[in-house]
Amino acid sequence: MARILVVDDDPGIRSLLTDVLEMEDYEVTVAVDGLAALQAVETVGPDFVILDVMMPGLDGFAVLSAIRALDGEPVPVLMLTAAAEPGTNTRAWADGVDYYLAKPFTADAVLDLIDGVLSQQVRVNDL
């Protein structure tokens, strides 16, 4: 079972994504801010991260930078944002994000993306 880390300060988005992903048999861990996200990345070792851009404390860009600095195979990261600034998506791509969706998004769009990415990966545990 793939492990998904959902990082968002909005409880409604965390709940929606958790419900949808768990119905598809993903193991979901949630983090409410950037510091909790970094801790979860270390302890959970997620196979995929869904990351909000605007959060209190460490924003999504700081979390992405820390994830990209880790040794080993890079974890796929999907950034979600309501930010209307034109440079936000450019910065996300430049900082190494794999996927980017603007809010509002559909749960199906997120699920289709994750399913597509993870179905192409062969995990060591699956061998």
Results as ranks from 00 to 15, higher is better:
V122Y: 06
E73C: 02
N89W: 00
V77A: 12
L101H: 03
A37K: 10
M54V: 12
D33K: 12
V30Y: 01
P104W: 09
N125Q: 14
M79G: 04
G12H: 13
D19F: 04
L35E: 14
F61I: 06
A82S: 15
V44Y: 03
K103M: 07
V97F: 00
D98C: 07
T88Y: 05
A2S: 15
E22Q: 15
I13V: 15
D71E: 15
A94V: 01
A109I: 01
V122T: 15
V117Y: 11
A2V: 03
A31P: 02
V41H: 09
G60T: 10
G72A: 11
A83W: 00
E27L: 12
G116N: 10
E42W: 02
K103R: 15
V6K: 05
G72T: 07
Q120E: 15
F105Q: 10
V63W: 06
I13G: 09
L21C: 09
M55L: 11
V49G: 02
L127T: 12
Y99H: 14
M54R: 13
V30M: 13
E27Q: 14
W93L: 11
R14I: 07
P104T: 06
T88W: 04
T18M: 07
G12P: 00
D25V: 01
A69W: 00
N125A: 15
R14Q: 15
D95G: 00
L113W: 02
G87W: 05
L111N: 09
M55W: 08
L17Q: 11
L78D: 10
Q121D: 03
M1Y: 08
S119W: 01
V97S: 06
F48I: 01
D33V: 10
G34W: 02
V110R: 02
V28D: 09
L5V: 03
D33M: 12
L35W: 04
L118R: 02
D9T: 08
V110I: 14
Y99V: 06
E27T: 07
R14D: 10
D33T: 09
A37E: 08
V49S: 01
T43A: 14
S65V: 04
L51S: 12
R123D: 14
A109D: 13
M79E: 07
V122K: 10
A69I: 00
